[in-house]
Amino acid sequence: MTLVRAFLVGGLLCGLAQLILDTTKANPAIIMVSAVSVGAVLSGLGLYGPLVTLGGAGATIPLTGFGHLLVTGMVEDATRSGLFGILTGGFRAASAALMAAIIFGYLMSVLFNPKG
């Protein structure tokens, strides 16, 4: 059941992003950037948390989930240690994915050549 919900929610987010790509002048990079910001705003409004409960990975894997993750981390640290927590919280929460992206990115560029 979790799998079905992940499919429905994740697919919907991707489908909406595609809809925006096809009906506006936005390019993929702009949509990726916007998705993170939209996720952060929805998170701030308290809407993204329930979406994660509903969709599980379907809500955390799309980039909107990345915005949510940053806000969650910041809010957690800020409630614990005040304003300074805003600076530490975001990337603390997102650190695993970012480190993985850098390390694997570098590794793949060592191992593989682009095929064109």
Partner: peptide, 18 residues
């Protein structure tokens, strides 16, 4: 395009959920 994005995006999330 919407359906294609939905299917593939949903499937990727299913892998994550697994």
């Amino acid at each position: 395009n919407f359906i294609k994005a939905y299917m593939v995006g949903g499937s990727i999330c299913v892998v994550g959920q697994i």
